[in-house]
């Protein structure tokens, strides 16, 4: 049974290619590009139960040397989509763009249009700060209870990816104990936005997702 199971895993492994991590290098078109999302988090603020925090990490698996010169792509918009009506269509967006080393975060705001194409909602409330440089103290922008940050951070994701790949390849029958965090020592480019929950509508549960969009 176990052999059958592992055989099935090996077949899957071959069919889906190299298996990676949370969303790091998840698809051919975005792998190793400035729009590759590695992880998305949404949680109640540790500082205030009245606030929600959204984290979108991009450009993963950077060692310290790469991190020191990494930058946000000025042609890429990072957007958090928020559905508060249960139809899986974004009712509110938070949009982050960078220009000349400065972060501008628009919203939360109802988007002019939903879906794959979009524009920066430049009439919305904008919260700004400098992009934090590698090795410098975090630069935090705040306005109307919103807080924003963008810059290199430790990748908060942890996973023994090497062991998982061995399992899929049929060269291991299970994880090791203790495991080894494949993402230890690596960095990402982080966007962190904290907003008052009162800006997100009245739904008990929000459906949220992160997207990156490139200027065309």
């Amino acid at each position: 049974m176990k052999n059958l199971f592992l055989t099935a895993l090996a077949v899957i492994s071959a069919s889906i290619g190299i298996v990676l991590a949370a969303d790091h290098i998840d698809a051919p078109a975005v792998t190793s590009t400035s729009s590759d999302i590695t992880d998305f988090y949404a949680f109640q603020s540790p500082e205030s139960s009245s606030n929600m925090v959204f984290v979108v990490n991009t450009q993963g698996l950077m060692d310290p040397t790469a991190s020191a010169t990494a930058a946000f792509d000025e042609n890429v918009m990072i957007q958090v989509n928020i559905d508060n009506t249960g139809d899986f269509v974004e009712d509110l967006v938070i949009q982050a763009v960078v220009n000349d080393g400065k972060l501008s975060v628009y919203g939360p705001v109802k988007p002019t249009s939903t879906g794959l194409m979009g524009m920066v909602e430049t009439d919305a409330t904008v919260t700004t700060t400098d992009v934090t440089e590698y090795g410098k103290t975090a630069s935090i922008g705040s306005k109307n209870g919103i807080k924003v940050f963008a810059g290199p951070r430790d990748d908060p994701f942890f996973f023994d990816l090497v062991a998982f790949k061995s399992i899929l390849a049929g060269t291991a029958t299970g994880f090791s104990n203790p495991g080894a965090d494949t993402f230890a020592g690596t960095n990402v480019m982080s966007l962190v936005v904290e907003v008052p929950k009162s800006m997100l509508g009245s739904a008990a549960t929000l459906n949220t997702w992160a997207v990156t969009k490139r200027k065309i």
Binding site: A21, D26, V211, T212, K213, K215
Partner: peptide
């Protein structure tokens, strides 16, 4: 400016797995 979507993520590892 017009922007076009490239990457997307909700729950961890869904596209990957």
């Amino acid at each position: 400016l017009t922007y076009q979507q490239e990457d997307q993520m909700g729950r961890p590892a869904i596209n990957t797995v």
